[in-house]
């Protein structure tokens, strides 16, 4: 009895592992495919039996080892052709910089404004506090597209079309951060703040020198989630940005699809360049992503 259940447990664990591995392969295949295609040679891209691993990955090191240094570097040169075309024939560098500007400035501003507001909402008593908070939070349920048209009119009136500010400003208005930081700050003992007050710290001083350092993990989490979300945002920048020179990466990527002569090698190179930074950020700060999700949930 005991033994058979142990056996069953082992079989169960084996099956479970198998399912997980298959699911992980399915999960990562499209991304792998983006990067693989970006490095494929032209004849590999258009072949009817696409190679799962680009030739350069298979043959580069053997070529070097067998002393065919010239052949190896030629292969490497050829497989970077897609990226070279991408960077020389499109505004990829501009798009990348624009995305960086949008994401960085939106993130920094959001962190500052949201932490200020969240601090007041979490730790202060003032008339109208709950009302203001709930007005803001209730709009979290309203899907963004509802406001697409009026938002566009506002941006147009302000003359912010084809301007990165037109993308950044609506991002800054998002209330998720206030909610998330308030949840986090509520867990910080009020006594610490009171102690600083007794020591004669100013109101802003309490915020900047006591609250901010204590709330660092929450702020880091929000920062990373915000950076990720703004980097990936698509619909709104698509509407606001017309000129190629001001486009963000995601919008620029779409223009690669609209060309008459389809070039998958170049498209996937673009996708790879767009995906690369977020993947790096994620791998380095994985813990913060996890924390952000669990903090932002309804319980708490």
């Amino acid at each position: 009895m005991q033994r058979s259940s142990k056996f069953l447990l082992k079989v169960g664990a084996g099956i479970g592992y198998f399912i997980l591995v298959v699911a992980a392969v399915v999960s990562l295949l499209p991304l792998h495919w983006v990067f693989a295609t970006a490095l494929q040679l032209h004849d590999e891209v258009i072949s009817h039996v696409p190679p799962l691993v680009p030739r350069v990955a298979l043959e580069y090191i053997p070529k070097v080892l067998s002393g065919d240094g010239e052949g190896a570097s030629q292969l490497l040169y050829d497989s970077l052709e897609n990226l070279r075309i991408l960077f020389t024939r499109t505004d990829m560098v501009r798009w990348f910089l624009n995305s960086l500007i949008v994401s960085t400035s939106a993130t920094v501003t959001i962190l500052f404004l949201d932490s200020l507001a969240a601090y007041a909402f979490a730790k202060k008593q003032f008339p109208g506090r709950d009302l203001l908070f709930w007005i803001m939070i209730s709009t979290m349920m309203i899907p963004g597209h509802v406001t697409l048209v009026p938002m566009f009119r506002i941006i147009a009136v302000l003359g912010l079309r084809d301007n990165l500010l037109g993308v950044i400003l609506p991002d800054i208005a998002m209330v998720f951060g206030v909610f998330l930081l308030r949840q986090f700050m509520r867990t910080i003992p009020t006594e610490l703040l009171d102690a600083a007050k007794i020591d004669g710290a100013s109101e802003f001083g309490i915020y900047s020198r006591v609250m901010l350092p204590l709330a660092k993990p929450g702020i880091a989490t929000l920062g990373i989630l915000t950076f990720n979300a703004t980097w990936n945002s698509f619909l709104w920048p698509l509407i606001v940005l017309n000129k190629s020179q001001v486009m963000t990466l995601q919008v620029g990527l779409k223009t690669l699809l609209d060309r008459n002569l389809v070039d998958y090698g170049m498209q996937m190179s673009g996708a790879a360049v767009a995906a690369f930074p977020v993947i790096i950020v994620f791998l380095f700060f994985q813990g913060y992503f996890v924390k952000g999700l669990t903090l932002g949930s309804l319980k708490g």
Binding site: F152, R153, I155, A156, G159, I239, S244, T255, D258
Partner: peptide
Amino acid sequence: MIKVPWAELAEKLNIAIAARD
């Protein structure tokens, strides 16, 4: 000069007109 792919011309122009820009 702003370079616009043919496929996007109509949509972009309509948006620009709606924005009076």
